[in-house]
Simulated assay, not measured.
Amino acid sequence: MSTITQPMNGRSTAAGLRLTVRGRRVLASLLLAPIGLGIGIGLAQIPAAFAGDSSIAAGETVEYEWRTVLGGESLWSISEEIAGNRDIRDVVHEIMRLNNLSTASVQAGQRIALPNF
């Protein structure tokens, strides 16, 4: 036969989960860590949002020469024409940056901006 002991005051011996002050702090920090990480990453992106061409003053407009790509032309052939004494790779990269191109391939009839050198 087994015996069951019951406290005299009628309360159960199994108390609920109790956290100490230190335990509450640890739990709160674990729950708030992803929020803090997200805020930190967002704040790190602020300089990139304000980045721009520092050689251009505020309110100043820049004019570019526009060119329509002819059949058989490539960014490399166009860059060779306008590069002068500059490295052709740098000119190709500048044209890609100005026109927001992810690759150096262009199509006949495409209009592109050329940098002013």
Rank of each mutant, 00 (worst) to 15 (best):
E80D: 03
L32H: 06
Q6V: 07
A57W: 04
A33M: 14
A108R: 11
S55H: 05
V21E: 15
A33P: 02
W66I: 07
R25N: 08
R25V: 11
A104F: 03
L37I: 15
R24Y: 05
N9G: 00
L27I: 13
L27W: 10
I46G: 03
I41E: 07
G16P: 15
A14E: 09
V92Y: 01
G71F: 03
G109H: 09
E65A: 10
V62S: 09
V62T: 15
I56L: 12
I46Q: 09
L114I: 00
S55M: 04
I112Q: 01
G52W: 05
S54I: 10
V91R: 00
S12E: 12
L101N: 01
S55R: 15
V62C: 06
L75K: 02
I4M: 07
E80C: 10
V26E: 13
N85T: 14
E65I: 05
P115N: 02
R111I: 13
G59P: 03
N100Y: 09
R89G: 03
A48T: 12
P7G: 04
L43K: 05
S74F: 04
D90R: 02
N99A: 04
Y64C: 07
N99M: 04
A83V: 01
A14R: 08
S12L: 09
L32I: 12
V91S: 00
R67S: 00
N99Q: 05
G109K: 07
S2K: 12
M1F: 06
R11N: 08
M8T: 12
N116H: 07
T3H: 04
E94D: 15
N99P: 05
L43P: 01
V91M: 01
R67W: 01
R24H: 06
I56Y: 02
E94N: 10
V26W: 10
G38T: 04
A15Q: 11
T13K: 09
G23R: 08
G42N: 11
A15L: 10
R22E: 11
V26R: 15
A104V: 02
A51G: 14
F50S: 10
I41C: 10
E80T: 08
L101T: 00
A28G: 08
F117K: 02
A33F: 15
L17H: 13
G59Y: 03
G71I: 03
L70Q: 15
T103S: 15
T103Q: 04
